[in-house]
Write a protein that binds this DNA or RNA. Structure first.
Lengths: 121, 121
DNA sequence: AAAGTAATGCAACTCAGGTGCAATAGCAAA
DNA sequence: TTTGCTATTGCACCTGAGTTGCATTACTTT
């Protein structure tokens, strides 16, 4: 993966926050610095390299966030929590207590919780 | 809510299956019988009247399924399970074991599990 | 410094979903 | 049954996220 200016700008964003970020907001934020095509393609590369992971919000919007190796199950099935008040989307650093369904095999998950966060309560 | 032919056709679909159905597939299925605008608007009405509920799949697509009063928590936060092999999307009739996060208040959820179902294993 | 090729920008496209408006058809009252 | 009200529909058009092809640019390696 080549070390381009656009790549570094995006990587820096993920280094500076624990929150997930909506892809649309990234495109807007860097509108004057790179094309939306570039944003989408860089995110694709970063996800393939396991630098970030992505998931779908409650209205079908895509979100991205850095991968935190601290949590072993971070890759495939940890939930995300979005606060209705402040809009922040957090990775929930808990292993998910999936009801094991007899005979079913769960491989991945897209789990979004909506509510009010600690700060906003 | 007026008893129109289009409405009855869609209601019948939900009466005849326990599975969730993607909105796109409904639009395709009734292409020759009603306009997509009508499909979207009827689904909107049915959801408002609590005849069906909707949620977002792993790729951001909208799905709809009938509400089953049998399960008390059916409305807001039961999970859905999509089989990678047959493509069927099922409502998981279990109460969800959400990790209660101290200080956080969960109001709703969009929970999609992906894997292999009983039939396809 | 040169060359190979990964990455970018741009324009054009796809596809889900929504909107405004005129035409149609349930439904209720007469 | 007929009339009138208005909910519902169809159509054309729009919006916005995401993708693609291709020519150009700029990393990286030798």
């Amino acid at each position: 993966m080549r070390q381009t200016k656009s790549l570094n700008k995006l990587v820096k964003v993920f280094e500076e926050t624990e929150f997930a970020i909506s892809v649309v907001s990234l495109v807007k934020r860097f509108k004057s610095e790179m094309s939306k095509t570039t944003v989408y393609r860089i995110l694709e590369r970063l996800e393939k390299k396991n630098v970030i992971h992505s998931f779908i919000g409650k209205d079908g919007e895509r979100w991205v966030a850095k991968l935190q190796q601290a949590y072993p199950s971070h890759v495939e099935r940890h939930p995300h929590f979005q606060c209705k008040t402040c809009g922040n989307m957090e990775c929930v650093p808990f292993d998910f207590n999936l009801p094991t369904i007899k005979g079913y095999e769960v491989e991945a998950a897209n789990l979004v919780l909506i509510g009010t966060c600690e700060q906003c309560l």
